[in-house]
């Protein structure tokens, strides 16, 4: 890392440290009632407890299962539909504004419908998360395929590329950076949707647990769960960044 990068990293860590110190100070000075903001050390004790006795992992398992099921569906549907539409200028003209329009709607307004049709178990969470994550993936796939330089297609045609070769060797690698960024946004939106739908109408998972603890005024435990979700989000985000930068290194040439 360069000097600038180190400085940036130091400031980032400093920001987190200041937040925690502020939290500790507010707790010690009794500026806010511990029912609203429990002391930092109490939350840490709770966090250690739920991690060491394993309760948090039961909820995590449910949430991650929903997330990965939803994401797998969104990926399969988004990439397939995106490629099919993206290959034809006409279908792009038809569907891109349509899909963009739907994506602009806060799709969470349809959550009651998902619950009505699929119940309040994990099925409705998976379907909702998959639906929401589908949009950025399909839109970026359409955009990526549509933006492939026409010269590359002409070159491949002149060389006698088959349809499959054109897809595998030209369209896919050319569109990959844009598609990967859609895949990443899709993951973040999928995670958000799963946690959100658990909080609104759920029996299980991290989201529903946070709401239940909050309603039971057990704020210290609730904060412990919130911190745990933040940790999980940070880990998943780091993994995605690594994946994306690997793809971008390959595509950096363009």
């Amino acid at each position: 890392m360069t000097g600038t990068a180190w400085r940036a990293r130091a400031i980032q860590i400093g920001f987190v440290v200041v937040c925690v110190l502020g939290w500790i100070y507010v707790g010690n000075a009794r500026l806010i009632s511990p029912i609203f903001l429990p002391r930092f050390d109490r939350v840490m004790t709770e966090l250690l407890r739920i991690v060491s006795n394993g309760t948090v992992f039961v909820y995590l398992g449910v949430t991650l299962f929903e997330l990965f099921a939803a994401y797998a569906l969104a990926l399969a549907a988004g990439l397939t539909v995106g490629f099919l539409i993206g290959r034809s200028r006409f279908w792009v003209a038809v569907f891109e504004p349509l899909l963009n329009g739907i994506f602009a709607v806060p799709i969470v307004i349809f959550l009651p419908l998902f619950i009505l049709f699929l119940g309040i178990g994990i099925e409705s969470k998976i379907a909702f998360g998959a639906t929401y994550a589908f949009f950025p993936i399909v839109l970026n796939t359409i955009g990526g395929i549509g933006a492939v330089d026409a010269r590359f297609v002409t070159v491949a045609q002149s060389l006698g590329a088959t349809r499959w070769q054109m897809f595998k060797r030209v369209l896919l690698p050319a569109a990959l950076p844009v598609i990967v960024s859609g895949i990443r946004i899709g993951f973040l939106i999928g995670f958000f949707s799963i946690i959100g739908s658990e909080m609104i109408a759920g029996l299980d998972g991290l989201g529903s647990q946070i709401v239940q603890l909050g309603e039971g005024m057990n704020t210290a435990a609730m904060f412990a769960y919130i911190l745990f979700v933040i940790l999980i989000a940070a880990i998943l985000n780091t993994l995605l960044s690594l994946l994306q930068s690997r793809f971008n290194r390959v595509a950096a040439a363009s």
């Binding site: 002149s158 006698g160 690698p173």
Partner: peptide, 20 residues
């Protein structure tokens, strides 16, 4: 149509695939 066994093209500008 394209007959790559008999005719090869060199195009203007850079048409090499940048990812390879």
């Amino acid at each position: 149509g394209p007959t790559p066994n008999e005719i090869a093209f060199v195009f203007q500008d850079n048409t090499l695939f940048p990812w390879s």
